[in-house]
Amino acid sequence: MTDYFRPLVQHGRHRPDTALPLAGGASWFTHALHLRRDAAPRVLPAAGIPADWQAALSAPRAPVAGLSMDAPRLMGILNVTPDSFSDGGLHAGPAAAIAHAETMARAGVDIVDVGGESTRPGASTIPEEEESARVAPVIERIARPGRPLVSIDTRKRAVAEAAVKAGAGFVNDVAGLTYDPGLAPFCAARALPVCIMHAQGDPATMQDAPTYGDVLLDVYDWLAARVAALEAQGIPRDRIVVDPGIGFGKTMAHNLALLEGVALFHGLGCPVLVGASRKRFIGVISGEQEPARRVPGSLAVALAAAAEGVQILRIHDVAETAAALKVWQATRQGRHDGT
Rank of each mutant, 00 (worst) to 15 (best):
P137N: 01
T125Q: 13
A162V: 10
L149G: 04
E128F: 03
T154R: 01
R157P: 05
A143K: 01
R144T: 01
I139F: 06
A162H: 09
V135A: 06
E131T: 02
A123G: 01
S132W: 12
D153E: 14
A166K: 07
E161M: 12
A166P: 04
R144S: 01
V150F: 12
L149A: 01
P137T: 02
E129H: 00
P148L: 08
E140A: 13
K165C: 09
A158Q: 12
G146R: 08
A162G: 06
S151W: 15
E128W: 11
I126E: 13
V138Y: 06
A166W: 04
A168M: 14
K165F: 03
I139Q: 11
T125C: 02
E128T: 09
V150I: 15
V135S: 06
K156G: 04
G167E: 06
T119A: 06
V164N: 10
I152S: 07
S118K: 02
A163I: 10
R144D: 01
R147P: 03
S124T: 15
K156P: 10
I139Y: 12
A163M: 07
P121Y: 15
R134S: 08
E131Y: 14
P145I: 05
R155E: 11
P148S: 07
L149N: 04
T119H: 04
R134P: 04
P148G: 06
P127S: 03
P127T: 07
I142W: 11
S132K: 08
S151R: 10
K165M: 05
R144E: 07
P148T: 02
P145D: 06
K156I: 10
R120S: 09
E130C: 07
E130T: 10
V164S: 05
K156W: 10
S118F: 09
S118I: 12
K156L: 13
E128C: 02
E140G: 09
R141Y: 03
P137W: 04
I142S: 02
R155F: 15
I152T: 00
A160P: 08
R155D: 06
E140Q: 07
I152N: 03
D153M: 13
G122S: 14
V159E: 01
A162F: 13
G167D: 12
P148W: 11
E129L: 11
V138Q: 00
A163E: 05
E130I: 12
T119F: 08
R155L: 08
T119I: 05
V164A: 07
R141I: 01
P148M: 09
P137G: 00
V159M: 05
R157W: 03
A162W: 13
R144V: 00
A143G: 04
A143F: 09
A158F: 09
I139N: 06
T154V: 05
T125M: 10
E129Y: 02
L149Y: 12
E128P: 00
I139E: 11
